[in-house]
Design a protein around this nucleic acid. Structure first.
Lengths: 196, 196
DNA sequence: ATAAAAAACTAATAACTGTTAGTTTTGCAA
DNA sequence: TTGCAAAACTAACAGTTATTAGTTTTTTAT
């Protein structure tokens, strides 16, 4: 068997991580075996260990890559000169695009973080809590400035982030709606409501 | 070791299913072992098989119990004399209460249905699709009658159902808000929006 | 008290798990 | 063409898994 093909940009390890994300999403982390992952690469399971350290390391790579992407975007958005509503709009749209563009990775990070090992599990959870708190503060700011309704900011944050996460089930209607239309529909619903 | 204690109402099997739901929620189905489950019952793993047929049967019980609860409630709600908005309000509040009251079971059904075996996997998914379609039709009806904004009804359905499912992360703020206040906040956000 | 049924136990198995050690093959640079 | 590093291979392991078979204990009903 010949060597596996590398991506144009990225090491062989990156390709393994990408295939792992796809496999973990379909079957779940614990129900996925290294032998199955090896098949997607066209090699034997032990050969994977020329490129990676362990199965758990693959999950870590996926989860923290996703976390970093979200954290970086939140940094730049909150630091921008946009209005509160523009910032929130921007954040929602970014979450939607991440769900669609990095489908496997984001879903794995959302579903399988429980299987991370300490101290990474604690690290991941505290990062997520911090992210959520900054989101809450933005909404609280909007309430204080009189632009948002007096909705409990934790509830509003949960509602928004969860609604977007639900896009993992969107695949069925991809053709009916463009990404931009999808974004507009969700943003309108979450910001202005369903009732006329 | 004596016999395990039965619930006041319910067989020993029901208690096993209940403990299984709690275990599966905490660790995930595939990462949970029958030995761990046996420990929660205070017995040895093989003794479980005096009451149940297989590990997978436990997952089936959890998933289809939840599905039946939701289907039954949807039946009665849609058949009621309430207005469209009242029906939708009613459905959202039921989902919220199910998330809080049947925490373990609903989360397991939402997360671990992938591990169901055929033909039950297909059965479960078609039930869920059917449920979702009836939800979509209710919203479409509201749009046609001019009560709802012209939001793509599949998107609105996804937004509402996903937002509520996110209550699996709510535990942290339980004390700050009563269940009724939580319901009111979420319903207002999902029906009337965040922006004033 | 006794018989029957329910439910616990111990021992064992075959399949599968992630991972290692050691060896051979491959592909690129000289 | 040759040498070397990267990356594949085979064989194997120690541990865990769900589950079965067979036996003993416990509870229930008469």
């Amino acid at each position: 068997m010949g060597k596996i093909q590398a991506l144009k940009n990225g090491s062989r390890k990156d390709l393994i991580v990408k295939n792992a994300a796809a496999l973990f999403r379909k079957k779940g982390f614990a129900a996925s075996s290294m032998r199955e992952l090896a098949i997607t690469m066209g090699i034997e399971a032990p050969s994977l260990y020329n490129h990676i350290g362990s199965k758990n390391e693959l999950l870590q790579a996926v989860c923290f890559n996703v976390a970093n992407r979200f954290n970086d975007h939140l940094d730049t958005t909150l630091a921008s000169a946009a209005t509160i509503i523009q910032k929130l709009d921007n954040l929602i749209r970014f979450h939607i695009r991440m769900m669609l563009d990095e489908f496997d990775e984001v879903i794995v990070a959302n579903h399988e973080w429980k299987q991370l090992e300490e101290p990474l599990l604690t690290n991941f959870l505290s990062q997520r809590k911090k992210y959520e708190n900054r989101f809450v503060m933005l909404i609280r700011e909007g309430i204080n400035e009189g632009q948002f309704k007096n909705i409990h900011p934790h509830v509003a944050t949960l509602t928004i982030l969860s609604a977007v996460r639900g896009l993992e089930f969107w695949q069925r209607h991809k053709k009916e709606l463009s990404i931009e239309e999808l974004e507009n529909n969700m943003v309108q619903h979450l910001l202005k409501g369903l009732i006329k």
